[in-house]
Design a protein around this nucleic acid. Structure first.
Length: 367
DNA sequence: AACCCGGGGAT
DNA sequence: ATCCCAGGGTT
């Protein structure tokens, strides 16, 4: 560290000082960085449909859909859900299979099950959502982030909504060297995030932080020259933005092989499908039955037909799949015979969709 | 605290 | 090829 602070570092010290005073003395004081941030947000924010309402139902639905999911991918799902279920009561009494089908392709399918359960809880309470963040947290699938987002946007509750974007923004503002996925680092992030909440309009300042992370303070190519809070950013001053946030956990990818079995009904126009158990991979989605094998299974040469390999990448697994026509009997209460032309009506995982795209026409054409 | 859960786009 | 996303639940 140089003896003299750079201008940006001096600025930063002043801003942190201001933040402490704001908390201790005047709850109506707005953090200077927040003022710059919200001015930028008012001008540059994306025109997203869930920003046109403060009704907790569509807001909550958007927040859950957008967990670990990009706007471009989630937007169409949000629209389809609201078109089919305009009110939370409509979602509550929907058929579970239909909810899963609407969620198909979005991933993290426990979100769909929890969305359904939470809607039923809200409907049972007269259609009113819990009215503060701590009570929102009691809903299935609603954690600290989603509760804070809904409470700040819908109820003006001054609580920071700290998601991946905010973690990145704040870790750069502070040039935080502590890992953000450990308690001390996380605490430092929460501290500044909470201090930057505009108590007069917490929903706006929260969304401005997230918008900044999404549009300017991006992971790989941050646009510091366009950033409204660059003057208060230590990482920008030191040129360490690309090194933030520091993370302790490393995602390790495991190679696995899934062997799928294609059982054909003697009638010649049905296939055996199974519903995946909740909790595991692709929980409650429909699939051809499969087993996980450590390596590529050796072909025995006796099989009538096989397909693949299909490659499927998940965040933590690299799946190589093959599908084999099976002559063995089927077992298990979780399955049923499905007409070839009805397979597409079921909620399928992505790999199943892609396999069926190849297998379906081939076996249907052989009849 | 560690681990699990999908999918896809940006780089 | 790598990273990581508008996280939450379970153990």
């Amino acid at each position: 560290m140089p003896d003299a602070l750079t201008t940006s570092e001096a600025n930063h010290a002043v801003l942190v000082e201001t933040e402490i005073q704001a908390v201790n003395e005047d709850v109506n004081e707005v953090h200077p960085l927040t003022i710059s941030l919200c001015t930028w947000y008012a001008k540059c924010r994306r025109d997203l449909p869930w920003r046109k309402t403060r009704d907790p139902y569509p807001i909550w639905l958007s927040e859950v859909i957008l967990q670990q999911t990009r706007v471009d991918q989630g937007l169409a799902y949000w629209e389809r859900f609201l078109e089919e279920f305009p009110r939370v009561e409509d979602l509550a009494r929907a058929d579970s299979e239909r909810v899963m089908k609407l969620w198909q392709g979005l991933g993290y399918y426990s979100r769909a099950r929890n969305v359904h359960k939470a809607a039923q809880a809200v409907a049972a309470a007269g259609g009113r959502f819990p009215s503060c963040a701590s009570e929102l947290c009691d809903l299935p699938g609603v954690g600290p982030y989603t509760a804070a987002a809904v409470a700040s946007i819908c109820y003006n509750e001054p609580v920071a909504a700290v998601d991946g974007n905010v973690i990145r923004v704040v870790s750069r503002l502070l040039d935080l060297e502590l890992p953000v996925d450990r308690a001390p680092g996380r605490g430092a992030i929460e501290g500044l995030a909470q201090a930057m909440v505009d108590r007069n309009d917490p929903g706006t300042s929260n969304q401005a932080m997230m918008e900044l992370g999404a549009m300017v303070c991006s992971p790989k190519a941050p646009k510091c020259s366009d950033c409204p809070v660059a003057s208060g950013c230590l990482a920008a001053a030191r040129g360490t933005a690309l090194e933030r946030p520091v993370k302790h956990t490393r995602t390790r990818v495991e190679n696995v092989h899934f062997t799928f079995a294609l059982h054909l009904h003697p009638s010649g126009d049905q296939v055996w499908m199974e519903r995946r158990p909740a909790g595991g991979i692709w929980g409650e989605l429909w699939s051809l039955p499969f087993t996980e094998t450590p390596d590529e299974p050796q072909k025995n040469g006796l099989e009538a037909k096989s397909w693949g390999p299909f490659k499927h990448e998940l965040s933590h697994r690299r799946i190589t799949a093959s599908c084999h026509l099976s002559e063995q009997g089927v077992e298990g209460a979780s399955g049923r015979w499905v007409d070839f032309e009805d397979v597409g009506e079921y909620a399928l995982h992505r790999l199943m969709e892609r396999m069926w795209e190849q297998i379906g026409p081939e076996i249907a054409g052989k009849r």
